[in-house]
Design a protein around this nucleic acid. Structure first.
Length: 424
RNA sequence: GGACAGGUGGCUGAGUGGUUGAAAGCACCGGUCUCGAAAACCGGCGUACCCGCAAGGGUACCGUGAGUUCGAAUCUCACCCUGUCCGCCA
Protein backbone atom coordinates (compact mmCIF):
# COMPACT_ATOMS: atom_id res chain seq x y z
CA UNK A 1 0.00 0.00 0.00
CA UNK A 2 1.17 3.44 -0.82
CA UNK A 3 1.18 6.51 1.37
CA UNK A 4 -1.66 8.88 0.47
CA UNK A 5 0.82 11.72 0.82
CA UNK A 6 2.70 10.25 -2.11
CA UNK A 7 -0.45 10.25 -4.24
CA UNK A 8 -1.15 13.83 -3.28
CA UNK A 9 2.24 15.45 -3.14
CA UNK A 10 4.36 13.51 -5.60
CA UNK A 11 2.11 11.59 -7.98
CA UNK A 12 4.90 11.71 -10.58
CA UNK A 13 6.92 9.31 -8.39
CA UNK A 14 4.19 6.70 -8.67
CA UNK A 15 3.85 7.29 -12.38
CA UNK A 16 7.56 6.89 -12.96
CA UNK A 17 7.61 3.74 -10.82
CA UNK A 18 4.80 2.18 -12.85
CA UNK A 19 6.54 3.16 -16.08
CA UNK A 20 9.70 1.38 -14.91
CA UNK A 21 7.59 -1.71 -14.27
CA UNK A 22 6.09 -1.39 -17.74
CA UNK A 23 2.70 -1.03 -16.08
CA UNK A 24 2.02 2.66 -16.64
CA UNK A 25 -0.31 2.14 -19.56
CA UNK A 26 -2.39 -0.33 -17.62
CA UNK A 27 -2.44 1.70 -14.42
CA UNK A 28 -2.59 5.29 -15.67
CA UNK A 29 -6.41 5.50 -15.40
CA UNK A 30 -6.25 4.22 -11.82
CA UNK A 31 -3.55 6.73 -10.92
CA UNK A 32 -5.62 9.55 -12.40
CA UNK A 33 -8.64 8.37 -10.47
CA UNK A 34 -6.60 8.22 -7.25
CA UNK A 35 -5.58 11.82 -7.56
CA UNK A 36 -9.16 12.92 -8.15
CA UNK A 37 -10.47 10.80 -5.30
CA UNK A 38 -7.82 12.09 -2.94
CA UNK A 39 -8.86 15.68 -3.70
CA UNK A 40 -12.55 14.81 -3.24
CA UNK A 41 -11.80 12.93 -0.07
CA UNK A 42 -10.04 15.87 1.46
CA UNK A 43 -12.79 18.34 0.62
CA UNK A 44 -15.42 15.97 1.96
CA UNK A 45 -13.48 15.38 5.15
CA UNK A 46 -13.22 19.11 5.71
CA UNK A 47 -16.96 19.53 5.14
CA UNK A 48 -17.80 16.64 7.46
CA UNK A 49 -15.40 17.74 10.18
CA UNK A 50 -16.81 21.25 10.09
CA UNK A 51 -20.39 20.03 10.53
CA UNK A 52 -19.45 17.58 13.21
CA UNK A 53 -17.75 20.38 15.11
CA UNK A 54 -20.99 22.36 14.85
CA UNK A 55 -23.04 19.41 16.01
CA UNK A 56 -20.74 18.80 18.97
CA UNK A 57 -21.01 22.43 20.01
CA UNK A 58 -24.78 22.36 19.65
CA UNK A 59 -25.10 19.16 21.65
CA UNK A 60 -23.05 20.60 24.47
CA UNK A 61 -25.28 23.65 24.50
CA UNK A 62 -28.30 21.34 24.75
CA UNK A 63 -26.70 19.70 27.77
CA UNK A 64 -26.01 23.05 29.37
CA UNK A 65 -29.57 24.29 28.82
CA UNK A 66 -31.13 21.10 30.10
CA UNK A 67 -29.05 21.34 33.22
CA UNK A 68 -30.20 24.95 33.61
CA UNK A 69 -33.81 23.96 32.95
CA UNK A 70 -34.02 26.03 29.78
CA UNK A 71 -35.82 24.85 26.64
CA UNK A 72 -33.62 23.45 23.85
CA UNK A 73 -36.11 22.34 21.21
CA UNK A 74 -34.69 24.71 18.60
CA UNK A 75 -31.18 23.28 19.04
CA UNK A 76 -32.44 19.73 18.93
CA UNK A 77 -34.20 20.42 15.66
CA UNK A 78 -31.08 22.07 14.33
CA UNK A 79 -29.02 19.08 15.45
CA UNK A 80 -31.36 16.72 13.69
CA UNK A 81 -30.92 18.62 10.42
CA UNK A 82 -27.16 18.68 10.88
CA UNK A 83 -27.22 14.96 11.55
CA UNK A 84 -28.92 14.26 8.26
CA UNK A 85 -26.41 16.36 6.40
CA UNK A 86 -23.54 14.65 8.19
CA UNK A 87 -24.93 11.23 7.35
CA UNK A 88 -25.08 12.16 3.69
CA UNK A 89 -21.58 13.64 3.57
CA UNK A 90 -20.19 10.78 5.64
CA UNK A 91 -21.54 8.33 3.13
CA UNK A 92 -19.91 10.22 0.28
CA UNK A 93 -16.66 10.36 2.21
CA UNK A 94 -16.75 6.64 2.94
CA UNK A 95 -17.47 5.89 -0.72
CA UNK A 96 -14.51 7.98 -1.86
CA UNK A 97 -12.29 6.43 0.80
CA UNK A 98 -13.27 2.89 -0.16
CA UNK A 99 -12.80 3.42 -3.85
CA UNK A 100 -9.42 5.00 -3.14
CA UNK A 101 -8.39 2.10 -0.90
CA UNK A 102 -9.52 -0.45 -3.45
CA UNK A 103 -7.50 1.14 -6.21
CA UNK A 104 -4.46 1.81 -4.06
CA UNK A 105 -4.45 -1.77 -2.76
CA UNK A 106 -3.90 -2.95 -6.34
CA UNK A 107 -1.00 -0.68 -7.23
CA UNK A 108 2.37 -2.43 -6.87
CA UNK A 109 5.29 -1.18 -4.80
CA UNK A 110 7.79 1.37 -6.08
CA UNK A 111 11.04 -0.38 -6.93
CA UNK A 112 14.36 0.92 -5.60
CA UNK A 113 16.58 3.11 -7.80
CA UNK A 114 19.15 0.34 -8.34
CA UNK A 115 16.53 -1.99 -9.84
CA UNK A 116 16.87 -2.01 -13.64
CA UNK A 117 13.78 -0.85 -15.49
CA UNK A 118 12.05 -3.04 -18.03
CA UNK A 119 10.79 -6.62 -18.22
CA UNK A 120 12.47 -9.94 -17.48
CA UNK A 121 14.82 -9.50 -20.44
CA UNK A 122 16.43 -6.76 -18.35
CA UNK A 123 17.17 -8.99 -15.37
CA UNK A 124 20.83 -8.92 -14.39
CA UNK A 125 23.03 -11.82 -13.29
CA UNK A 126 24.89 -10.36 -10.33
CA UNK A 127 27.22 -13.26 -9.65
CA UNK A 128 27.44 -16.99 -9.91
CA UNK A 129 29.03 -19.74 -7.87
CA UNK A 130 30.21 -23.23 -8.72
CA UNK A 131 30.69 -25.02 -12.00
CA UNK A 132 27.43 -25.94 -13.79
CA UNK A 133 27.55 -29.60 -14.75
CA UNK A 134 27.18 -30.26 -18.50
CA UNK A 135 23.88 -31.82 -19.46
CA UNK A 136 25.31 -34.63 -21.58
CA UNK A 137 24.01 -37.97 -20.42
CA UNK A 138 22.37 -36.53 -17.34
CA UNK A 139 18.87 -37.76 -16.63
CA UNK A 140 16.10 -35.46 -15.42
CA UNK A 141 15.10 -35.78 -11.78
CA UNK A 142 11.79 -37.49 -12.49
CA UNK A 143 13.57 -40.39 -14.12
CA UNK A 144 16.01 -40.73 -11.24
CA UNK A 145 13.19 -40.47 -8.72
CA UNK A 146 11.09 -43.01 -10.57
CA UNK A 147 13.99 -45.46 -10.69
CA UNK A 148 14.53 -45.09 -6.95
CA UNK A 149 10.93 -44.63 -5.85
CA UNK A 150 11.59 -41.25 -4.26
CA UNK A 151 8.27 -39.70 -5.14
CA UNK A 152 5.00 -40.84 -6.63
CA UNK A 153 3.27 -38.32 -8.86
CA UNK A 154 0.55 -40.67 -10.08
CA UNK A 155 -0.66 -41.57 -6.63
CA UNK A 156 -0.38 -37.95 -5.54
CA UNK A 157 -2.76 -37.10 -8.35
CA UNK A 158 -5.07 -39.95 -7.36
CA UNK A 159 -5.21 -38.92 -3.73
CA UNK A 160 -5.44 -35.16 -4.26
CA UNK A 161 -5.25 -34.08 -7.87
CA UNK A 162 -2.66 -33.18 -10.44
CA UNK A 163 0.05 -31.01 -8.95
CA UNK A 164 0.26 -32.95 -5.71
CA UNK A 165 3.04 -35.41 -5.04
CA UNK A 166 3.74 -38.10 -2.48
CA UNK A 167 7.33 -38.40 -1.35
CA UNK A 168 8.21 -41.94 -0.40
CA UNK A 169 10.96 -43.80 1.36
CA UNK A 170 14.30 -42.04 0.96
CA UNK A 171 12.45 -39.27 -0.88
CA UNK A 172 10.32 -38.55 2.16
CA UNK A 173 13.39 -38.70 4.36
CA UNK A 174 15.08 -36.25 2.00
CA UNK A 175 12.29 -33.73 2.56
CA UNK A 176 12.76 -34.07 6.30
CA UNK A 177 16.54 -33.82 5.90
CA UNK A 178 16.31 -30.57 3.94
CA UNK A 179 13.95 -29.12 6.52
CA UNK A 180 16.31 -29.97 9.36
CA UNK A 181 19.45 -28.83 7.59
CA UNK A 182 17.94 -25.49 6.64
CA UNK A 183 16.29 -24.80 9.98
CA UNK A 184 19.36 -25.83 11.95
CA UNK A 185 21.53 -23.57 9.80
CA UNK A 186 19.32 -20.49 10.01
CA UNK A 187 18.26 -20.87 13.62
CA UNK A 188 21.66 -22.07 14.78
CA UNK A 189 24.21 -20.13 12.78
CA UNK A 190 22.38 -17.22 11.22
CA UNK A 191 20.58 -16.16 14.38
CA UNK A 192 16.96 -16.53 13.32
CA UNK A 193 14.21 -17.40 15.75
CA UNK A 194 12.62 -20.63 14.68
CA UNK A 195 8.87 -20.42 14.12
CA UNK A 196 6.31 -23.07 13.30
CA UNK A 197 3.37 -21.10 11.90
CA UNK A 198 -0.23 -21.99 11.10
CA UNK A 199 -0.78 -23.20 7.54
CA UNK A 200 -4.06 -21.31 7.38
CA UNK A 201 -4.49 -17.55 7.71
CA UNK A 202 -7.30 -15.03 7.67
CA UNK A 203 -8.10 -12.36 5.08
CA UNK A 204 -6.43 -9.59 7.05
CA UNK A 205 -3.13 -11.46 6.99
CA UNK A 206 -3.34 -12.17 3.26
CA UNK A 207 -4.05 -8.49 2.67
CA UNK A 208 -1.26 -7.39 4.99
CA UNK A 209 1.46 -9.04 2.96
CA UNK A 210 -0.14 -8.11 -0.37
CA UNK A 211 -1.48 -11.43 -1.68
CA UNK A 212 -4.93 -9.87 -1.54
CA UNK A 213 -6.87 -8.36 -3.11
CA UNK A 214 -5.03 -8.79 -6.40
CA UNK A 215 -4.01 -12.42 -6.30
CA UNK A 216 -7.03 -14.04 -4.68
CA UNK A 217 -7.42 -16.41 -7.63
CA UNK A 218 -4.04 -17.93 -6.84
CA UNK A 219 -4.91 -18.83 -3.27
CA UNK A 220 -6.73 -21.84 -1.90
CA UNK A 221 -9.64 -20.51 0.09
CA UNK A 222 -11.74 -22.20 2.72
CA UNK A 223 -15.00 -20.46 1.89
CA UNK A 224 -16.89 -21.56 4.99
CA UNK A 225 -14.51 -19.71 7.32
CA UNK A 226 -13.03 -17.22 4.85
CA UNK A 227 -9.57 -18.59 5.59
CA UNK A 228 -6.71 -19.20 3.17
CA UNK A 229 -4.11 -21.93 2.87
CA UNK A 230 -0.80 -20.12 3.05
CA UNK A 231 1.05 -19.68 -0.25
CA UNK A 232 4.23 -19.14 1.78
CA UNK A 233 5.24 -18.86 5.44
CA UNK A 234 5.87 -15.20 4.68
CA UNK A 235 2.18 -14.58 5.30
CA UNK A 236 1.80 -15.86 8.86
CA UNK A 237 5.30 -14.82 9.90
CA UNK A 238 5.22 -11.26 8.56
CA UNK A 239 1.76 -10.86 10.08
CA UNK A 240 3.04 -11.99 13.48
CA UNK A 241 3.43 -8.33 14.44
CA UNK A 242 0.51 -6.94 12.44
CA UNK A 243 -0.99 -3.93 14.20
CA UNK A 244 1.85 -3.80 16.71
CA UNK A 245 4.57 -1.46 17.81
CA UNK A 246 7.90 -3.24 17.93
CA UNK A 247 10.36 -2.01 20.58
CA UNK A 248 13.24 -0.40 18.69
CA UNK A 249 15.77 -2.45 20.63
CA UNK A 250 14.36 -5.63 19.08
CA UNK A 251 15.25 -4.55 15.53
CA UNK A 252 16.51 -6.01 13.35
CA UNK A 253 14.87 -9.35 13.99
CA UNK A 254 14.66 -12.46 11.91
CA UNK A 255 12.47 -15.54 11.84
CA UNK A 256 12.92 -18.81 10.00
CA UNK A 257 9.98 -21.08 9.43
CA UNK A 258 9.30 -24.34 7.70
CA UNK A 259 5.87 -24.60 6.13
CA UNK A 260 4.00 -26.30 3.36
CA UNK A 261 2.94 -23.81 0.67
CA UNK A 262 -0.26 -23.99 -1.32
CA UNK A 263 -0.71 -22.32 -4.68
CA UNK A 264 -3.46 -22.76 -7.21
CA UNK A 265 -1.05 -21.63 -9.95
CA UNK A 266 -3.94 -20.07 -11.82
CA UNK A 267 -2.70 -19.09 -15.25
CA UNK A 268 0.38 -21.29 -15.06
CA UNK A 269 -1.23 -24.20 -16.87
CA UNK A 270 1.20 -25.97 -19.15
CA UNK A 271 4.33 -24.61 -17.50
CA UNK A 272 6.80 -26.99 -15.86
CA UNK A 273 4.47 -29.90 -16.19
CA UNK A 274 7.12 -32.59 -15.80
CA UNK A 275 8.57 -33.55 -12.48
CA UNK A 276 8.07 -31.57 -9.32
CA UNK A 277 9.10 -28.09 -10.45
CA UNK A 278 5.66 -26.50 -10.10
CA UNK A 279 3.29 -28.08 -7.63
CA UNK A 280 0.09 -26.97 -5.93
CA UNK A 281 1.70 -27.92 -2.64
CA UNK A 282 5.37 -27.76 -1.83
CA UNK A 283 7.60 -27.28 1.18
CA UNK A 284 10.03 -24.56 1.99
CA UNK A 285 11.93 -22.90 4.77
CA UNK A 286 11.29 -19.19 4.72
CA UNK A 287 13.31 -16.34 6.20
CA UNK A 288 11.56 -13.17 7.34
CA UNK A 289 13.25 -10.05 8.67
CA UNK A 290 11.96 -6.81 10.20
CA UNK A 291 14.25 -3.80 10.38
CA UNK A 292 14.51 -0.01 10.33
CA UNK A 293 14.30 1.80 6.98
CA UNK A 294 17.96 2.83 7.19
CA UNK A 295 19.00 -0.77 7.55
CA UNK A 296 16.87 -2.49 4.95
CA UNK A 297 19.28 -2.40 1.99
CA UNK A 298 21.97 -4.06 4.10
CA UNK A 299 19.44 -6.51 5.53
CA UNK A 300 18.50 -7.67 2.04
CA UNK A 301 22.14 -8.50 1.27
CA UNK A 302 22.41 -10.30 4.61
CA UNK A 303 19.26 -12.33 3.94
CA UNK A 304 20.44 -13.16 0.43
CA UNK A 305 23.74 -14.36 1.89
CA UNK A 306 21.91 -16.67 4.30
CA UNK A 307 19.93 -18.23 1.44
CA UNK A 308 23.05 -18.55 -0.71
CA UNK A 309 24.86 -20.29 2.13
CA UNK A 310 22.41 -23.20 1.83
CA UNK A 311 23.29 -23.77 -1.81
CA UNK A 312 27.00 -23.58 -1.07
CA UNK A 313 26.58 -25.99 1.78
CA UNK A 314 24.91 -28.41 -0.60
CA UNK A 315 27.59 -27.75 -3.23
CA UNK A 316 25.02 -26.79 -5.85
CA UNK A 317 26.14 -24.33 -8.54
CA UNK A 318 23.90 -21.30 -8.67
CA UNK A 319 23.61 -17.75 -9.87
CA UNK A 320 22.15 -14.62 -8.32
CA UNK A 321 19.73 -12.69 -10.48
CA UNK A 322 18.61 -9.15 -9.79
CA UNK A 323 15.11 -8.85 -11.15
CA UNK A 324 14.19 -5.92 -13.37
CA UNK A 325 11.28 -3.75 -12.24
CA UNK A 326 8.78 -5.45 -14.55
CA UNK A 327 9.69 -8.88 -13.20
CA UNK A 328 9.62 -7.81 -9.56
CA UNK A 329 6.65 -9.05 -7.54
CA UNK A 330 3.69 -6.89 -6.56
CA UNK A 331 4.76 -6.06 -3.00
CA UNK A 332 8.50 -6.09 -3.57
CA UNK A 333 10.78 -3.08 -4.01
CA UNK A 334 13.78 -5.18 -5.00
CA UNK A 335 14.17 -8.89 -5.53
CA UNK A 336 17.07 -11.26 -6.06
CA UNK A 337 16.30 -14.71 -7.36
CA UNK A 338 18.67 -17.58 -6.62
CA UNK A 339 18.81 -20.05 -9.45
CA UNK A 340 20.42 -23.45 -9.16
CA UNK A 341 21.65 -25.31 -12.21
CA UNK A 342 19.69 -28.47 -12.96
CA UNK A 343 21.65 -30.28 -15.68
CA UNK A 344 18.97 -32.93 -16.24
CA UNK A 345 16.29 -30.49 -17.29
CA UNK A 346 19.02 -28.19 -18.59
CA UNK A 347 17.72 -25.11 -16.82
CA UNK A 348 18.42 -22.71 -14.00
CA UNK A 349 15.75 -23.35 -11.38
CA UNK A 350 14.49 -20.61 -9.10
CA UNK A 351 15.07 -22.03 -5.63
CA UNK A 352 14.80 -18.78 -3.71
CA UNK A 353 13.47 -15.30 -4.09
CA UNK A 354 14.80 -12.69 -1.65
CA UNK A 355 13.02 -9.36 -1.43
CA UNK A 356 12.75 -6.15 0.48
CA UNK A 357 9.26 -4.75 0.67
CA UNK A 358 10.39 -1.43 2.14
CA UNK A 359 7.38 -0.06 4.09
CA UNK A 360 4.80 -1.43 1.62
CA UNK A 361 3.76 -4.44 3.69
CA UNK A 362 4.30 -2.61 6.97
CA UNK A 363 1.82 0.08 5.95
CA UNK A 364 -0.75 -2.50 4.92
CA UNK A 365 -0.19 -4.53 8.06
CA UNK A 366 0.39 -1.50 10.29
CA UNK A 367 3.70 -2.59 11.79
CA UNK A 368 5.59 0.24 13.44
CA UNK A 369 8.42 1.03 15.79
CA UNK A 370 9.49 4.06 17.80
CA UNK A 371 13.07 5.07 16.92
CA UNK A 372 13.63 6.81 20.28
CA UNK A 373 11.48 7.41 23.37
CA UNK A 374 10.11 10.84 22.47
CA UNK A 375 10.00 10.40 18.72
CA UNK A 376 6.99 9.54 16.58
CA UNK A 377 6.18 6.08 15.27
CA UNK A 378 7.59 4.94 11.95
CA UNK A 379 6.81 2.00 9.73
CA UNK A 380 9.31 -0.84 9.83
CA UNK A 381 10.70 -2.40 6.69
CA UNK A 382 10.00 -6.07 6.02
CA UNK A 383 12.02 -8.56 4.00
CA UNK A 384 11.82 -12.20 3.21
CA UNK A 385 13.39 -14.92 1.16
CA UNK A 386 13.19 -18.63 0.68
CA UNK A 387 15.95 -20.48 2.37
CA UNK A 388 15.20 -22.67 0.38
CA UNK A 389 12.29 -24.24 -1.57
CA UNK A 390 12.54 -28.02 -1.37
CA UNK A 391 11.28 -29.52 -4.65
CA UNK A 392 13.62 -27.60 -6.92
CA UNK A 393 16.53 -28.13 -4.56
CA UNK A 394 15.71 -31.81 -4.60
CA UNK A 395 15.54 -31.84 -8.40
CA UNK A 396 18.84 -29.99 -8.66
CA UNK A 397 20.44 -32.26 -6.11
CA UNK A 398 19.37 -35.45 -7.89
CA UNK A 399 20.50 -34.19 -11.26
CA UNK A 400 23.73 -32.59 -10.15
CA UNK A 401 24.96 -35.51 -8.04
CA UNK A 402 23.78 -38.42 -10.18
CA UNK A 403 26.42 -41.01 -11.00
CA UNK A 404 26.94 -43.15 -14.08
CA UNK A 405 25.56 -46.18 -12.22
CA UNK A 406 22.25 -44.40 -11.54
CA UNK A 407 23.00 -43.64 -7.92
CA UNK A 408 23.11 -40.15 -6.44
CA UNK A 409 25.90 -38.92 -4.22
CA UNK A 410 24.71 -37.15 -1.08
CA UNK A 411 26.59 -33.95 -0.21
CA UNK A 412 28.40 -33.97 3.16
CA UNK A 413 26.10 -31.47 4.82
CA UNK A 414 23.07 -33.65 4.21
CA UNK A 415 24.55 -37.03 5.19
CA UNK A 416 23.85 -36.87 8.91
CA UNK A 417 20.26 -35.84 8.24
CA UNK A 418 19.66 -38.39 5.52
CA UNK A 419 21.55 -41.19 7.17
CA UNK A 420 23.39 -42.20 4.02
CA UNK A 421 26.05 -40.93 1.65
CA UNK A 422 24.41 -42.32 -1.47
CA UNK A 423 20.92 -42.74 -2.85
CA UNK A 424 20.22 -45.77 -5.04
C1' G B 1 -20.68 -27.36 19.51
C1' G B 2 -23.40 -25.67 24.46
C1' A B 3 -23.55 -22.44 29.03
C1' C B 4 -21.63 -18.40 31.60
C1' A B 5 -18.15 -14.24 32.15
C1' G B 6 -15.49 -10.57 29.76
C1' G B 7 -13.11 -7.35 25.76
C1' U B 8 -11.42 0.52 27.86
C1' G B 9 -4.71 4.05 26.61
C1' G B 10 2.29 0.25 27.01
C1' C B 11 0.21 -2.64 31.51
C1' U B 12 -3.42 -2.88 35.76
C1' G B 13 -8.10 -0.81 36.21
C1' A B 14 -12.61 3.05 37.07
C1' G B 15 -16.43 4.86 34.12
C1' U B 16 -25.08 7.41 36.32
C1' G B 17 -26.37 8.83 27.63
C1' G B 18 -24.46 15.21 28.17
C1' U B 19 -16.89 19.77 29.11
C1' U B 20 -14.86 11.57 29.03
C1' G B 21 -9.51 11.29 24.92
C1' A B 22 -11.46 8.96 28.92
C1' A B 23 -10.35 8.64 36.85
C1' A B 24 -6.52 6.21 39.50
C1' G B 25 -2.10 3.29 39.89
C1' C B 26 2.18 1.27 37.41
C1' A B 27 5.61 1.93 33.54
C1' C B 28 8.00 5.69 30.64
C1' C B 29 10.19 10.90 29.67
C1' G B 30 11.87 15.83 31.67
C1' G B 31 12.97 18.47 36.15
C1' U B 32 13.86 19.49 41.63
C1' C B 33 16.63 17.22 45.56
C1' U B 34 21.64 14.28 45.87
C1' C B 35 28.79 13.73 45.45
C1' G B 36 25.93 10.02 42.61
C1' A B 37 21.78 6.77 42.86
C1' A B 38 17.24 5.35 45.25
C1' A B 39 13.07 7.51 47.59
C1' A B 40 10.07 11.82 47.59
C1' C B 41 8.03 15.89 45.00
C1' C B 42 6.69 18.85 40.35
C1' G B 43 5.54 18.53 35.21
C1' G B 44 4.80 15.68 30.81
C1' C B 45 3.14 11.25 28.63
C1' G B 46 -2.12 7.66 22.80
C1' U B 47 -2.94 6.98 17.46
C1' A B 48 -4.71 8.43 12.67
C1' C B 49 -6.57 12.07 9.48
C1' C B 50 -7.76 17.35 8.06
C1' C B 51 -6.68 22.89 8.16
C1' G B 52 -2.24 25.98 9.21
C1' C B 53 4.61 28.48 7.44
C1' A B 54 4.15 27.93 12.57
C1' A B 55 1.89 28.50 17.15
C1' G B 56 -2.33 26.24 17.20
C1' G B 57 -7.20 24.45 15.83
C1' G B 58 -10.72 20.56 14.17
C1' U B 59 -12.50 15.40 13.49
C1' A B 60 -12.39 10.27 14.53
C1' C B 61 -11.00 6.13 17.57
C1' C B 62 -12.96 2.56 24.43
C1' G B 63 -12.93 -5.67 20.14
C1' U B 64 -15.41 -5.07 14.74
C1' G B 65 -19.68 -3.47 11.98
C1' A B 66 -24.56 -1.60 11.81
C1' G B 67 -28.54 1.02 14.58
C1' U B 68 -31.30 4.39 18.29
C1' U B 69 -30.38 9.72 19.88
C1' C B 70 -29.69 16.74 19.35
C1' G B 71 -25.61 13.90 21.82
C1' A B 72 -23.10 6.84 22.75
C1' A B 73 -17.23 3.98 25.99
C1' U B 74 -22.20 4.01 28.29
C1' C B 75 -28.60 1.75 25.05
C1' U B 76 -30.05 -2.13 20.78
C1' C B 77 -28.59 -5.90 17.12
C1' A B 78 -25.03 -8.94 14.53
C1' C B 79 -20.23 -10.71 14.29
C1' C B 80 -15.08 -11.59 16.13
C1' C B 81 -11.84 -12.71 20.09
C1' U B 82 -10.37 -14.17 25.24
C1' G B 83 -11.37 -16.82 29.88
C1' U B 84 -14.03 -20.65 32.72
C1' C B 85 -17.09 -25.00 32.83
C1' C B 86 -19.51 -29.01 29.89
C1' G B 87 -19.48 -32.02 25.46
C1' C B 88 -16.41 -33.94 21.46
C1' C B 89 -11.61 -35.10 19.80
C1' A B 90 -5.58 -35.81 17.60
Amino acid sequence: MHDLKLVRERPEVLREAMRRRGALEALAPQLDRCETLEKDRRLLQQAVDERKAARNASSQEVARRKKAGEPADDLIAQGRALGEEIARLDRELADAQHELDDILARIPNVTLPDVPEGGEECNVIVRSWGEPRPSDGVRPHWEIAAAQGLFDIERGAKVSGSGFVVYRGRGARLVRALMNLFLDSHAGEHGYEEVWPPAVVNRASMTGTGQLPKMEDDAYRIAEDDLFLIPTAEVPVTNLYRGEEIPAAMLPMGFCAYSPCFRREAGAAGKDTRGILRMHQFDKVELVRYCTPEDSAAQLELLLGHAEAMLRRLGLPYRVKLLAAGDTGFSSAKTYDLEAWAPGVGAWLEVSSCSTFTDFQARRANIKYRPAPREGLRLVHTLNGSGLAFPRVMATLLEHYQQADGSVLVPDALRPYLGTDRLG
